[in-house]
Write a protein that binds this DNA or RNA. Structure first.
Length: 120
RNA sequence: AAAGCAAAUUGGGUAAUUACUCUAAAUCAUUUCGGUGAGUUGGAGAGGAAAGUCCGGACAUUUACCCCGCCUCGGCGGGGAAGGGUAAUGGGUAACACCCAUACGGAGUAAUCCGCGAGGUGCGAGCAGAGACGCUUUUGCUAGCGAUAGCAAAGGCAUCCUGAGCAAUCAGGGUGAAUCUUUGAUAUAAGCUUGAGGCAUGCCGAAGUCGAAAGAUGGGGCCUGCCCUGAGUAAAGUCGAAGGGUGAAACGGCUAAAUCCUUAUCUGAAUGCAAGGUCGUGUCCCAAUGCAAAUUGGGAAGUGCCGCUUGAGGUUUUGAGCAAUCAAGAUCCCAGAUAAAUUAUUACCAAGGAAUUUUUCCAAACAGAAUCCGGCUUAUAGAUUUGCUUUGAUA
RNA sequence: GCGCCUAUAGCUCAGUCGGUAGAGCAGUUGCCUUUUAAGCAAACGGUCCCAAGUUCGAGUCUUGGUGGGCGCA
């Protein structure tokens, strides 16, 4: 789990990132990124009820994404806000988290990625 | 041993490293001395349904109708009506539509399971029509395979008398009542009572019944028994060959409102912790006062804290009770988040399946607290225990 | 989290007190017109969301489920 300073905790910040941030598409995931004034990376995850009606499934998807970010927290460049929106159909057979790393590296948010983080 | 029924328990465990939430302790930094921040160590961290939101409470805020009483005169207290629920009998409970016991009805060989169950009314609320439901039987004739239909005559219920029969009962006569409709009188919450009078029970038609079908019937549905004489048998109030009476409507039996009416009984109502509070905090807007600075009041969108977890609590002992449950004692503290924690990885053990022969592989249900409790309902892989029933075998 | 509404023909909706389900539009066929549109007429089209119960009989009443939608700081 991420420490408190690495989370987006206010509804207004969520709105700002979602409206003004750059969008990245990574399969069924949508990443919204926006530069902030703080010197740390902040993460927010949005999983709607249309992803799955069961709360267990939604919570599991959130945990998987959080775990990936907490492992690669040192490699991501600071002072960025990221919101991950999970769309329907993601994670039906395993959780493809290495794609997420490549996607972040492509736009220069990650310095050196490690390709061995495909968690079952 | 097989099949079945009921009840209860469990919903993997241990260890290591790691992340997060809450909490306790001391340390450091800062401070407006209230706190705030940082890392360290210890403790705790999802369910039997956390779900559906179908009932019932606790808790919080607001408040309507009528009457009575009190006073500080706009509040308090009490009662009622309306509305809403419930419905065998009794008990339990804070309360319930829940639970327990007993009786009754139904299903099953049985263990056992199921039952929203008071009383009344009594069923096309279709069509036409001013008006539509109290209705059927016996005898004779005609038609039809039949259910039945048409025409004519005579009837029905209660009670009394006369006659017939061993009897149940039947026949004749007298008296009285009832059903339906209309009008009038009287009375009324619906209604009921008394008097008088009269019959278009038409067309279509669901279930059921009859029929091979066509069709007929169909004004809730279903049921067929009961009584007398009595050969006989060891015996007969009880079993019973055979015969007879009655069996139609019914004021015969059972059943039918989960939509109507009545009765009994319970209950103020509405909104739901996003209730609501805050002698918290800044921002924006409006109004008043003011030369201005500013102050006061109101509103808007944010945000912090309280509400928030010690409770109709858990475990256990004793007692009361058939039981549900209750009482007393001992002991324990057991999630409290807010873009929302409860994670990830590894090893071993236990248990399941498949291959195979001592190892390998696979899979592991339903499902995630959000104010808190008591129930109900729905979803649920597997494992364990206890009691009981039936059938078969052996002793 | 708390509290509500709704499901009927291809589409939009009626259906009161249980008696066997309709309206408009669309589609089909015919008439009218030189032809199309408009208009007129006819027929077609329904698991009344699913399951159980009450009832002689359920779209309607009762209970449970499924889908869709809405409000509240």
């Amino acid at each position: 789990m991420l420490p408190q300073r690495n989370r987006i905790r206010k509804n207004a910040d969520f709105g700002l990132v979602c409206r003004q941030g750059r969008a990245l598409f990574c399969g069924k995931l949508i990443l919204k990124t926006r530069r902030s004034d703080l010197d740390v990376v902040r993460l927010g995850i949005s999983v709607g009820i249309s992803y799955s009606p069961k709360a267990v499934v939604r919570n599991r998807a959130k945990r998987q994404i959080r775990e990936f970010f907490s492992k690669n927290l040192q490699k991501i460049q600071p002072s960025w806000d990221v919101v991950v929106i999970v769309q329907k159909g993601w994670g039906e057979s395993g959780y493809p988290l290495s794609e997420l790393g490549e996607c972040l590296a492509k736009c220069g948010l990650i310095k050196n990625i490690s390709p061995t983080t495909n968690i079952k």
